[in-house]
Amino acid sequence: MAGSRSSRLQSFQARAIGTLWRFLSGWSLKALWCVARRLGPLVHLLSRREREVTDTNLAVVYPDMPADERRSLARQSLCHSAATMLELGHAWIASPARVEAHILAVYGRDKLDDARAQGRGVIVLAPHFGNWEVLNFWLSSHFPFTAMYEPPKIADLEPIIRHGRERMGASLVPTNSRGVAALLKALKRSEAIGILPDQEPDWGSGVFAPFFDRPAYTATLLPKLVARTQARVVTGVALRVPGKGFVIHFLDADERVYSEDDVTSATGVNVSVEASIALDPAQYQWEYKRYRKVVEEAEGVANANDYRLY
């Protein structure tokens, strides 16, 4: 009985969310940004979890920034996070021509074209910055593109999300060994793949490397892919121009990402993410618990208070 109620609730939630996305897909980006600008301060005021994680991350990353500037940055960041959620209908459901028209410029495309001309695949590090779904839209519109995909917690949303992400030709693969094999095959075909570089992996799938000078548990998938394919690595972001559209940037990754040493490569990944954040720190998703895992936990030490942030 309880399972049946839970299933009905999830089905209702999925229908409600899907209806909202379809409704918002017809809104202008200017209107969506106007709503996001009002939601951000409300989230900061009313959501203790989002406020505390965002404020804690910013205090760690920008310790010398005056407190009032950090509070302002936190509210701006939550505005951009709200905008990303509101823009999902635009990225997934609006007509492809309309989405493409809102991509105002693309910088660094030559990095992808040159690598593929040399017979090399391209690994795109896509941090949670700006609107990463618009980045997925552009990449899958212009290149054979493969990315890992983890089904949503609300199972009934999966058809909508998969259709939105795959509609321009992207291939989604599972976050397991079968998915890694698919990524390798795509790179060996000189195609592009996407990796989330700033999401904490499960224990055993990462190492601690500095992220803004603080140890952060970072995935080690990248050096394995590079070693077996000689792929080129770039960082890709879709920078929001509020109310107008997006500017896509492809940046050369830090050279350390090509190291065979896991810690050195992970350090290069984190430095590459830092470089993309520098484009506009307010557009990074600071409410994610990037420092959740700590060194002491990995070493089995009981008292982890010295490093724990959350």
Rank of each mutant, 00 (worst) to 15 (best):
A2E: 15
S11C: 10
R15H: 13
F23M: 14
G26H: 06
W27I: 08
L42F: 11
T56G: 14
T56C: 15
L58A: 06
Y62P: 12
P66L: 01
P66S: 06
P66G: 06
L73S: 07
S77V: 03
L78P: 07
T84K: 11
M85D: 10
L86P: 08
P96E: 07
R109H: 10
K111I: 04
V124W: 01
L125V: 00
N131E: 00
N131T: 05
N131G: 01
E133P: 09
F143P: 02
A147N: 00
P152A: 07
K153P: 10
I154H: 03
E158H: 13
G164V: 02
E166M: 15
E166V: 08
L172C: 12
V173N: 07
V173S: 09
T175C: 12
T175V: 14
R178L: 13
A181C: 09
A181R: 15
A182V: 12
L183M: 07
S190V: 10
E191V: 04
I195K: 08
D198G: 02
Q199G: 09
Q199P: 10
W203P: 14
S205G: 14
A209S: 00
D213A: 13
A216S: 14
A216Y: 10
T220D: 06
L222Y: 06
K224A: 14
Q230M: 11
R232S: 12
V233N: 01
V234H: 00
V234C: 02
R240C: 02
F246T: 03
F250I: 05
D252L: 04
E260K: 15
D261V: 13
V263Y: 12
T267G: 02
G268N: 05
I277D: 09
A278L: 10
Y291A: 04
V294Q: 08
V295G: 07
G300W: 03
N305P: 04
Y310F: 13
